[in-house]
Design a protein around this nucleic acid. Structure first.
Lengths: 125, 125
DNA sequence: TGTAACTATTTACATCTGTAATCGAACAGG
DNA sequence: CCTGTTCGATTACAGATGTAAATAGTTACA
């Protein structure tokens, strides 16, 4: 629904927020340390920007803030996916799927899972 | 191999270049008219930037330039795909594939094709 | 040959991004 | 009670991006 535009670096932050539900700035910073090499101030900046974009809210808890997402991850994933599909594959799903299928290592369970989804497609039209 | 970074709008331009092989600015502008609503000057700007980024070359042909890509589309697709996978799906291919499989309309032929690719995966340990 | 038309080059400019440092307020320990 | 630490808030700043107008160089027609 919303026309949010989450930048590359902001996705990193949102990913840890979505994984953790409600986190303080400090917690976000810690969880990002493994992935990114940002100064703490950098993470703070992004939290602020995400708040300004109405993607995050915060409530004071003691002397610190607890940040929480206002948008569902699945919605953002959906939007980002559509725009990626459009931009890179001209909106054609099949080539996209072929590309990722070929370039991915998949476990037998995952293969089975994907096969099931494919089978569901069989039913239509 | 190259560390090119093609922006969203620039992808539009590159897509028509890749589709057309060698095109003048005018041709690019015309072919974009259906998709985008950019002033001709805007398209020119992007062509210039892409040249500066070493993504495009041009040769003079008469009084105009003919632009041609210096990078293979497949390389750019690969790079963009990897970065998208990382950013939005945390590097997990299976969820990405599941997402796109579910949200795509696929023809029976496409389904068969994807199934074949899945089958190829079977072989790997 | 002058001038209109078209092309490419240069310049513009606000916003977004990546990446922080600094400032001011509150809290905590001595 | 003073002071260092810790938060959040404000400010910084260069480069990328979207979006284009202005200018300069060239060609082709009148």
């Amino acid at each position: 629904m919303p026309h949010v535009s989450i930048s590359d670096a902001e996705w990193q932050v949102m990913n840890v927020i979505w994984d953790g539900q409600s986190l303080t700035a400090q917690e976000v910073i810690e969880r990002l340390e493994s992935h990114a090499t940002w100064a703490p101030a950098t993470v703070k900046t992004m939290l602020h920007r995400l708040v300004k974009k109405d993607v995050l809210t915060y409530e004071p808890q003691g002397n610190r803030y607890v940040y929480r997402s206002r948008v569902r991850r699945s919605d953002c994933v959906k939007q980002a996916s559509r725009s990626f599909l459009e931009r890179v594959f001209g909106g054609e799903s099949a080539p996209l799927l072929a590309h990722f299928l070929r370039s991915s290592k998949l476990s037998p369970e995952e293969i089975a899972q994907l096969r099931r989804i494919l089978k569901e497609h069989e039913g239509e039209s």
